[in-house]
């Protein structure tokens, strides 16, 4: 074995390791992206777990307009909406509100709400101490459900944000959760 073959081997090893590393990095981008979203406020994602209410001072001099929006996955036979569309709140104040949902289907379904805040930068300052989006929400057929939401707005909220829109998109995850057979065309093997 010549010196050149040996140095070839060494170099190839490094390069292949580099490739594998970059392949791994592609997947590492998934958690890295979440961090990026948190710091930059991409897509207005809020925390997925409850935060503690730790505010002593309520800034009465400032009012933030909070708009609530609801969106249902197409084809999902539910009613879903906020009890109030708009709330005016002071930063630091603990606010309790709720969304109401009704499963109009005849069978029990599991829903998952995905929150999104606009402007995205506001997401960092919108703290939820209780939210129905933290868990999956099973609701029996033909039954209503109350989805409570308790939150406060961080007094650190940048001065140029006056309105925060909180939108929830409700997804039907019954099949995904229960692992039932898909109802899609592939699973059924029928061509309509």
């Amino acid at each position: 074995m010549t010196a050149s073959t040996q140095s070839n081997k060494k170099l190839i090893t490094y390069l292949v390791l580099g490739c594998l590393g970059m392949f791994g990095f592609g997947f590492a981008l998934v958690p890295l992206y979440d961090i990026m979203c948190d710091t930059l406020g991409i897509n207005g994602k809020t925390a997925t777990t409850a935060q503690a209410y730790d505010q002593q001072v309520i800034n009465k001099s400032r009012t933030i307009r909070i708009e609530f929006m609801a969106h249902i996955q197409p084809g999902m036979k539910w009613d879903f909406g906020p009890t109030t569309n708009v709330l005016e709140v002071h930063p630091g104040e603990l606010v309790k509100t709720a969304f109401v949902a009704k499963n109009n289907a005849s069978k029990r379904m599991i829903a998952q709400a995905i929150p999104s805040i606009s402007p995205g930068l506001g997401a960092k300052y919108f703290h939820k101490t209780e939210c129905f989006c933290f868990q999956q929400q099973p609701v029996d057929g033909q039954s209503p459900a109350d989805f409570p939401l308790v939150f406060f707005v961080d007094p650190q909220l940048p001065k140029d944000i006056h309105t925060l829109t909180l939108s929830y998109t409700l997804y039907d995850i019954t099949e995904k959760t229960l692992g039932e057979a898909l109802t899609g065309p592939q699973a059924q093997g029928v061509t309509p």
């Binding site: 897509n43 929006m69 995905i114 999104s116 805040i117 606009s118 829109t165 939108s167 998109t169 997804y171």
Partner: peptide
């Protein structure tokens, strides 16, 4: 317009 999220 992104499914699941809002943009403004």
């Amino acid at each position: 317009a992104i499914p699941g999220f809002i943009n403004e």
